[in-house]
């Protein structure tokens, strides 16, 4: 009986310890994301391909890592043509990310309707977004509506 009680006590303690460990794991996971949840980058955006390329430097982007492998990207004051008379802020929400062994993240997305100019803007639907994100840089390619877009940036100090 005493043995049973000891065993039960050990089980309870183990359960408690496991529970605590799981909780700690959750915390660890959350901490990993939250420590790098928002980062600001500045870099070069290139729109188009071949001879019809339009590029601009010093374009700002903000990344925000969320839980469950999702992140948001926000591009500030971008234009997709030299003749475009406005610049817009555009949010790409729900981009997938996965952590790599070297600590970087692969990012990808398809068929995301961006948020721009106060609401969803289907004309600039994001397709084929592929790229990577590190603590110091971000690089991705995507199609923004009919515009092929490449962005390469480094973190703002």
């Amino acid at each position: 009986m005493k043995t049973m009680k000891k065993l039960l006590l050990v089980l309870i303690l183990c359960t408690f310890a496991v529970a605590c460990t799981e909780k700690d794991d959750d915390n660890t996971s959350n901490t990993q994301v939250s420590t790098s949840d928002k980062k600001d980058y500045s870099g070069t955006i290139t729109i188009g391909s071949g001879e019809n390329v339009f590029a601009e430097d010093s374009v700002s982007i903000q990344s925000e890592l969320l839980t469950e492998g999702k992140m948001n990207l926000k591009m500030f004051q971008v234009k997709f043509s030299p003749y475009m008379p406005v610049r817009i802020d555009m949010g790409i929400n729900g981009v997938n990310y996965s952590k790599q062994l070297d600590g970087s993240y692969n990012i990808s997305a398809d068929s995301i309707v961006p948020i721009a100019m106060g609401g969803e803007y289907p004309s600039y639907t994001i397709t084929n977004l592929q790229g990577s994100l590190t603590d110091s840089s971000i690089t991705f390619n995507m199609n923004c509506g009919s515009y092929p877009v490449t962005y390469t940036g480094t973190i703002k100090k």
Binding site: F76, Q77, K79, M84, P85, V86, R87, I88, D89, M90, A116, M117, G118
Partner: peptide, 9 residues
């Protein structure tokens, strides 16, 4: 600004 639009010029 609220819309995230900047007019050129």
């Amino acid at each position: 600004r609220d819309l995230g639009i900047t007019l050129e010029n």
